[in-house]
């Protein structure tokens, strides 16, 4: 199958492993974009989701923001911002953050809101402060779902961060965009394979994080 041949050819070409267009450089760039966008999205989505979930208020606002953010096309946003403010990191970060906020926000909100109310009632009755309830009772139990929201956001960002190359930045998208213009399918397929690999690594990282931070009492084993 020629896709596999492309992958093989791509990775066995020594030139792809060195220099500013080498795989290590592009990989690091890609991871940087991903982490930055995910961090920004988490900084917005987690606190808002936790707070609205805890109070049970603002559910409609959360749903509205998520719907609106999902409706905005990432690629369109990228081109629009690039056309208006010029190329740079901003046109890349805005679409990626817009992409990552809805899954984080919605799952966090749902995770906290749908918790069994009895332990929360017990904690309040014991004299725990509201902050204490949120962080020591609700969050630990909601954590698996919260992580799953972060995970799906991360996968989408890893995949979509390729658009950075369209506005002259680096990352693994470089191979795909350059391959497209140079009619070099080997490069396109190689870049796509690297992105898929990165997605697998992301899954593994979240799986490990789940094992590490989620209490065995919540995991039920």
């Amino acid at each position: 199958m020629n896709v596999l041949n492309f992958v093989n050819a791509f990775f066995s070409d020594g030139a792809h492993w060195h220099g500013y267009d080498g795989i290590p450089t592009r990989l690091v760039e890609h991871v940087q974009y991903t982490l930055m966008a995910l961090g920004l999205a988490a900084a917005i989505g987690l606190p808002v989701g936790l707070l609205t979930g805890h109070t049970g208020r603002g559910g409609n606002a959360v749903a509205f923001v998520a719907t609106a953010a999902r409706a905005l096309p990432s690629f369109g946003l990228l081109v629009l911002i690039a056309v208006v403010v010029g190329i740079g990191l901003l046109p890349v970060m805005i679409p990626l953050v817009v992409l990552a906020v809805p899954p984080i926000l919605v799952t966090t909100y749902e995770a906290v809101r749908s918790l069994d109310p009895a332990p929360v009632d017990a904690a309040r009755g014991m004299g725990m402060t509201e902050t204490g309830i949120l962080f020591r009772v609700e969050l630990p139990v909601a954590l698996p779902l919260v992580l799953s929201g972060l995970r799906s956001a991360a996968i989408q960002v890893v995949s979509t961060a390729t658009i950075a190359a369209y506005v002259s930045l680096g990352g693994l998208g470089r191979y795909i965009i350059d391959g497209l213009y140079q009619r070099d399918y080997e490069k396109v397929v190689g870049g796509a394979a690297l992105v898929a690999l990165l997605a697998l690594v992301t899954l593994a990282v979240f799986w490990a994080a789940g094992r590490f931070v989620v209490s065995p009492g919540v995991r039920r084993r």
Partner: peptide, 12 residues
């Protein structure tokens, strides 16, 4: 599959 960028699939 979901993680493979759409553009790459288009090209192939």
């Amino acid at each position: 599959f979901y993680a493979i960028p759409s553009l790459a699939v288009f090209v192939v």
